[in-house]
Design a protein around this nucleic acid. Structure first.
Lengths: 332, 332
DNA sequence: TTGTAGGCGTTATCAC
DNA sequence: GTGATAACGCCTACAA
């Protein structure tokens, strides 16, 4: 019942455990015949090396810890898939952990990783820099994804929100929009903050005379619907809505249309992320290649772990403008 | 730089490592003053126990391995979230691994878990029984989710496809449908197979005179569209389509509607899973509470690990009929 | 109450 | 080429 150990294999093959280890790890200083005996014994016993013991002895777990906030749907699954694939390719396993809030629980999740992983990937758009510095285990190399500002002293991967927002504003302006409103994400979120700032900057560049309208939102459909109601009620005057994510854009889109507002005839609607729903409903948006970001994070972290040179770069990934039917030309 | 060990704490607190261990693990046979000295030393050094070493000595890793096929979107993320939450609550971490095909790679992924986890949760709707028996590590308790038939000798969680299909057929029949077509999923998939069989049985019960139409599909939108084309071309005569998952149902729905077919007036469309898109587009479907299934799997596995009695039950989870606008009354 | 020592399953450094 | 043996970091009898 209990698993065979290297000792059992040694006994059965009539050799020392040292030889078993050598044979199984493919070292060349073993006689061919010895190797065969060991291999045979191992397979007869169904022996599988104990990864825990192995990593203790090697001081290498061949595992990386991934700490994520509450992500949803395609975003989460694509991200994890990208990481898992790359990790698997390099011979690492992935230890996944969700953190839900700012509290102790996050620190605990990080602590629980010590001694089981060789490095950490942390996505924490809502954690503060102080919090992060306090709870990141000292000896563990870690890479931050979309982390808070001011943590660029270590390796980092993040979305280039400035370029993305600029691309969208340029598109809206090019298709004749002049009064563009932005639905922002939650304040605690770094991406949301960056997008608002980028929106301001971009608007100042393209439409210096316009007064940029910014509506508060929370990344949920409901936020978009509220904005739509305000537009319909005449409280917001705009000919385009650019939401900080797709769900808000879709909520807004649906509310506008069911109120009989012509989209894109009278008002253009655009989002951010390119969730499947966006494609399905023809929403213009910025596509984020999240699986790729995950894979890159893993690649860089493993490169660091395996000593392919220090790497403290702040890598920015570009989003891609996807024009669909919610931002066509405006009605004249 | 390199992490402090229990020895460093012992030295600093001027006690033996045994006392450190006792103090840190909350055993009561330590003098209060000793405990305080240890705690102080530990926190000064920022000491965090080495989980790997700990699990080697305890023979318990407090980790469970989760092996999944290629799942997508909300299905994957909800499932993982359900498991992660429950695991975290019980003090376990989750080791995630995707397997993509039937080959060696699956066996390797399972092997890589040995010595790092206490138990395994395997979701493998596409692996054969033989394959599974061959590669499941002997000494590792494992629980199968939606596994192949014939593996009910161990603990198991699966969807009750029979009841789900029966509920949907009953609903369709009750709303006046008589010629119901089923779009099946890929043949290698257990759920798809079960749904086809259940469809046959259910049809025989409700409409013994009807000749059940079954169209091949592959769980993708495209499969649904093909079916829609066949219907429009008159190759399939039906007044209702019940697809084995939502994506196919949605593909079919969209193709039908854009060809001007009245849904549900002329043809009713129903799916399976209740993905967010289904809710959004008003698709009638069977809701699968996947997070709950994940949580239950974790709960049961941990109960087994912690010796709360053996548990070889084959637990079936019920899906829930969600009636929306694609299956209203038919036009008369 | 505390400390010493052995063991968990490996790998690596020595001798031989 | 092979075999003892000392780590790796922790827990836990057993002794004191």
């Amino acid at each position: 019942m209990s698993e065979a150990t290297i000792r059992d294999v040694a006994r059965r093959a009539q050799v020392s455990i040292a030889s078993v280890s050598r044979a199984l790890n493919g070292l060349d200083n073993v006689r061919a015949e010895t190797r065969d005996r060991v291999l045979a014994a191992a397979s007869e016993l169904g022996y599988v090396p104990h990864a825990g013991a192995r990593s203790l002895s090697l001081a290498r777990a061949h595992a990386i810890g991934v700490v994520l906030p509450d992500l949803h749907g395609e975003f989460f699954s694509e991200f994890v898939r990208g990481m898992d694939r790359e990790a698997g390719r390099r011979g690492y396993v992935m230890l996944l952990s969700n953190i839900h809030d700012e509290s102790e629980q996050a620190a605990a999740a990080l602590r629980a990783m010590r001694g089981r992983v060789d490095g950490l990937i942390v996505m924490a758009p809502h954690l503060s820099e102080a919090m992060l510095r306090r709870s990141l285990p000292a000896g563990l190399p870690s890479l931050l994804i979309n982390g808070p500002e001011g943590m660029e002293d270590g390796p980092t991967v993040r979305l280039d929100n400035d370029a993305a927002v600029e691309a969208m504003i340029a598109h809206l302006v090019a298709t004749g929009r002049r009064r563009i409103a932005h639905i922002a994400g939650p304040e605690g979120n770094v991406d949301a903050r960056e997008r608002v700032a980028a929106f301001r900057a971009s608007m100042a560049r393209h439409l210096p005379d316009a007064d940029p309208v910014i509506v508060a939102g929370d990344f949920s459909e409901e936020g978009g619907e509220a904005t739509a109601r305000a537009i319909i009620a005449g409280q917001i005057d705009c000919d385009a809505v650019f939401a900080a994510n797709d769900m808000m854009a879709l909520g807004c889109l649906q509310a506008l249309r069911s109120a009989g507002v012509d989209v894109p005839g009278r008002i253009a609607v655009a989002g951010f992320d390119d969730v499947p729903l966006a494609r399905y409903l023809g929403l213009t948006t910025m596509r984020v290649r999240i699986a790729e970001m995950g894979a890159r994070a893993i690649t860089r972290l493993i490169d660091i772990l395996e000593g392919k040179g220090a790497d403290d770069a702040a890598e920015r990934h570009q989003a891609e403008l996807v024009v669909r039917s919610t931002t066509g030309a405006r009605a004249t």
